[in-house]
């Protein structure tokens, strides 16, 4: 059967990797291409580049990053951040991205999912959902703008809606778990992954090898994402994979 995927995520701003990268063995730890190539060699199944540039110039730089990445990597990669139109999607796919991810734009303009899926196929349309548990209503609420603005959408319903509109994959980030390194949000991940038929990437909370095993054995997530634990070499891709293999989870 198909293997579970482990996906490092790189935050890129104005063409440089930001947010905690402390690779000692890289010539330039801020170079997204060098870091991506390292992860490719180390056994990453896919990569995600998240463009957090605020400026127009930064966004143009991202296209160059994508072109270089496509020329060097032998694994697929997704580009997210700042994608708000069919033209933006086209530009990134043409530059060599395998998939694009949209978050705020999908909420503000859900027709964009349909337009993108119709033109480029669902397989390259990832919708990222940032969700936070709201105790008052005992449900998860979808946030936009990097987790700053709550919406009226509930995570499970929203996931089903974006799939209906043509999303081929969901990147699900638990805002409650993110940054705590206490493990993935099992309840949220299970609720969403059992509600949709497309692949779901669990994100937020990875701190050690066991956390990956927990999310794959307790939910239907088909992939798991982490950033800082890989960047800071707290956990290696190979140790995660070995741990999973030893416990019967099929990985590459």
């Amino acid at each position: 059967m198909i293997t579970k995927r482990i996906i490092p995520c790189l935050d890129v701003k104005e063409g440089r990797v930001v947010k905690g990268v402390s690779f000692v063995n890289l010539r330039d730890a801020g170079d997204p291409i060098e870091l991506a190539a390292h992860y490719d060699q180390a056994g990453a199944d896919e990569l995600i580049f998240l463009d957090i540039s605020a400026s127009h110039e930064g966004r143009k730089t991202m296209v160059e990053v994508v072109e270089k990445a496509a020329g060097q990597l032998s694994i697929p990669f997704t580009v997210g951040g700042g994608i708000a139109s069919v033209e933006d999607i086209f530009r990134m796919l043409r530059a060599g991205a395998d998939k694009i991810s949209m978050n705020t734009a999908a909420v503000l303009n859900p027709e964009l999912i349909e337009a993108g899926a119709r033109r480029f196929g669902s397989q390259c349309m990832v919708v990222a959902i940032d969700a936070k548990y709201e105790p008052e209503i005992q449900d998860w609420i979808v946030y936009t703008h990097g987790g700053r603005i709550p919406t009226e959408h509930r995570a499970v319903n929203w996931a089903q809606e974006v799939v209906k509109r043509g999303a081929g994959e969901i990147l699900l980030t638990s805002m409650d778990a993110d940054g705590h390194k206490d493990g993935f949000d099992i309840q949220l991940t299970q609720a969403v992954s059992e509600a949709v038929q497309v692949p779901v990437i669990a994100s937020g909370g990875a701190g050690n090898e066991q956390h990956f095993y927990e999310v794959f054995s307790n939910t239907q997530a088909t992939a798991a994402l982490a950033a800082s634990i890989f960047h800071f070499q707290e956990v290696s891709l190979s140790s995660v994979k070995t741990y999973l293999k030893e416990r019967g989870v099929e990985v590459r």
């Binding site: 059967m1 198909i2 995927r5 038929q197 497309v198 692949p199 992939a223």
Partner: peptide, 10 residues
């Protein structure tokens, strides 16, 4: 009962 697309390493 399959996730579609078939996406990933097989």
């Amino acid at each position: 009962e399959l996730r579609i697309p078939h996406m990933g390493w097989n």
